[in-house]
């Protein structure tokens, strides 16, 4: 059985559905790819059993689809103003009503998802590697490298997130790109802290001592052995952080320092709906609910990922 599994390449087994299931449950993995896929399968099974995480994932997937297919799903032009049809309540013609300039809220919400996800994903892509590299390097090398890097982190951590982002946007000028840079600058330090804390516990372990005794360089140890151990907690942290990023982006938009008015960013929409909140609740409530739901979804998914990715669960 063993020898057969080794001899035959893994791919042909994956043709039919039952074949795929068998392949994923095979007791002896036949290649590194096979072993990796089996691990992913187990993790997926665990995610599947976790209701709230699955809900979070569904919301995020729906959001991604909505953002992707926004031009197909939208019923109206998002920039076209129609003052005759301003402040209309939700109806068959305008599913989520219209705003103070007569623009369709539903269509704007769809395009707003693009901006929100763009900010959240781009910030994460910038923040996670920087935090990871700074944190693991400081934690593994220790000494003055650690002191210098962590004091820099302390300086950033001394300011509240939004205030720091505000200061950077004020310096760089308003706009989505600058908002992303500002939010990134404000949100890498907690990740560096987390990665450093993880590294401090990992560097003392026998498996790191073992690679050191094999003559591995610090660079190889940090990138090849410490980082893979830090990635799960960083992924969890980043997912939980997405909610904060979305809120900060919306906050900047609300204050007029993020996306600029004609663009349908949720924070900006919320801000313009504020004046009409007593008479036309939907203008503020709908982007507000979207922000709430998205943040909640990322939080639930992050919580679930923490249970799934923890290496101690094996």
């Amino acid at each position: 059985m063993t020898d057969k599994a080794i001899a035959s390449p893994a791919a042909p087994a994956a043709t039919s559905h039952s074949g795929l299931g068998q392949w994923l449950r095979a007791p002896v993995p036949a290649s590194p790819f096979h072993a990796r896929m089996q691990q992913l399968w187990l993790q997926w099974r665990r995610l599947h059993a976790n209701g709230s995480a699955l809900f979070g994932l569904c919301v995020i997937v729906i959001l991604l689809l909505a953002a992707l297919f926004a031009p197909l799903l939208a019923t109206h032009d998002i920039f076209e103003q129609n003052l005759a049809a301003r402040l209309l309540a939700p109806s068959a013609e305008h599913w989520l009503g219209t705003d103070e300039l007569g623009r369709d809220v539903y269509s704007r919400l769809l395009f707003g998802a693009r901006i929100t996800l763009y900010i959240a994903l781009l910030t994460t892509v910038i923040v996670a590697p920087i935090g990871l590299i700074v944190g693991t390097t400081a934690g593994y090398l220790g000494g003055w490298v650690d002191t210098v890097l962590m004091r820099i982190v302390d300086v950033f951590l001394a300011f509240p997130n939004l205030i720091l982002a505000l200061a950077f946007v004020a310096a760089l000028g308003p706009g989505i790109e600058n908002a992303i840079i500002a939010i990134s600058l404000a949100s890498w330090p907690p990740i560096a802290r987390l990665a450093r804390a993880e590294t401090l516990t990992i560097r003392k372990s026998d498996y790191i001592a073992a690679v050191r005794l094999q003559g591995a360089s610090s660079l190889r140890i940090i990138f090849g052995h410490i980082m893979p151990m830090c990635i799960p907690s960083v992924v969890v942290r980043v997912t939980l952080n997405m909610a904060a990023i979305i809120l900060t982006a919306a906050g900047l938009g609300f204050l007029g320092l993020g996306a600029q008015p004609p663009s349908p960013e949720w924070g900006t929409m919320l801000s313009s709906g504020r004046e009409f909140v007593m008479t036309s609740w939907w203008i503020a409530a709908i982007p507000g609910t979207a922000i709430l739901l998205t943040s909640l979804a990322f939080n639930l998914l992050g919580d679930g990922l923490r249970d799934i990715l923890d290496p101690r669960h094996g």
Partner: peptide, 10 residues
């Protein structure tokens, strides 16, 4: 403790 938990034997 002496084997990396995320690396296969190979």
């Amino acid at each position: 403790g002496s084997l990396h938990p995320r690396k296969i034997v190979e």
